[in-house]
């Protein structure tokens, strides 16, 4: 119960920050993808069941809030991310900052690649422009924020899994 409540709390906090009109942490129009960072962490820490369920929930909420014509797109990609990262639970150990940075960067970039490819219906000029303008710097930014945020989430995880 504590684990579930803490997970909901983390997701709602990330969602509120991401949706905030304050543009928290925005640099030159690029923001870190907090929801994806949380999903990466949850999937690697909890496995593929939690990964795919969290991915679907986060993606679905994101879809609802965005332009409704994209309903299902975020959910689809985040389910894939959650499941495949969850499958890596116990196989990779992210102890160092550089390892965490690398995995968050790779996942963010792959996520955006897939997302914008479908979003732009394989039309390459806007796809490439968005990848260069937003996805690449976004992945670098998210990886930097994410690798630091993982330390905080580690502590929170210790609290939520502690015996009551």
């Amino acid at each position: 119960m504590r684990k579930f409540a803490a997970t909901i709390l983390i997701v709602v906090a990330a969602l509120s920050l991401q949706m905030s009109p304050l543009n928290i942490g925005e640099i030159l129009g690029v923001r870190p993808d907090l929801l994806l960072i949380v999903l990466i962490y949850l999937s690697l820490a909890e496995g593929r069941k939690w990964g795919s369920v969290s991915g679907f929930a986060i993606g679905f909420v994101q879809d609802l809030y965005q332009a409704p014509d994209q309903l299902g797109l975020n959910a689809l990609i985040k389910v894939l991310v959650g499941f495949f990262l969850g499958s890596l639970k116990g196989r990779i150990y992210l102890k160092g900052l550089s390892e965490r940075w690398a995995i968050v960067f790779a996942v963010c970039f792959a996520h955006d690649l897939l997302y914008y490819l479908i979003y732009f219906s394989f039309r390459f000029p806007p796809f490439l422009s968005t990848m260069i303008r937003f996805a690449l710097p976004g992945a670098i930014y998210s990886a930097t924020v994410g690798s630091l945020l993982f330390i905080l989430l580690d502590r929170l995880r210790m609290w939520r899994t502690a015996p009551t």
């Binding site: 993606g59 299902g72 797109l73 959910a75 894939l80």
Partner: peptide, 10 residues
Amino acid sequence: LLLASVSMLL
């Protein structure tokens, strides 16, 4: 979940 997402997209 994958099928649900694809269904929503469609």
